[in-house]
């Protein structure tokens, strides 16, 4: 599946992460984080893991991290993708 619509989840509060997903021809993951040097790789691995588990192979993912734990990152990414897909379904349904 690919991301067909922009969607967001999370916040910029400390301990949270604001996830933005957008349409893209390839799979792109961008990470901004105060702990990028320590946990950038781990964050990217988790993001790929969630994307794969949801069957997403195309899309741009941006993580504006504020020191979120891994479980928070996974939850926010999951919600963002879910919103992107759901909104799209709803729009398609609405246009018919």
């Amino acid at each position: 599946m690919k991301i067909l619509k922009k969607a967001q989840a999370g916040t910029l509060e400390s301990g949270d992460v604001l996830v933005t997903v957008k349409p893209s021809d390839t799979l792109m993951i961008e990470i901004e984080s105060p702990v990028a040097r320590q946990f950038g790789d781990a964050m990217e691995r988790s993001a790929r893991d969630v994307l794969e588990s949801m069957g997403i192979y195309e899309g741009a993912v941006h993580l504006a991290d504020q020191g979120a734990l891994d479980c928070t990152l996974r939850a926010r990414l999951h919600t963002a993708i879910h919103r992107a897909l759901q909104d799209y379904d709803a729009d398609v349904a609405g246009s018919l």
């Binding site: 702990v35 040097r37 320590q38 946990f39 950038g40 790789d41 781990a42 734990l69 891994d70």
Partner: peptide, 9 residues
């Protein structure tokens, strides 16, 4: 266990 092991800088 909470954070994961930070990469050594």
């Amino acid at each position: 266990l909470l954070t994961g092991r930070p990469r050594l800088l």
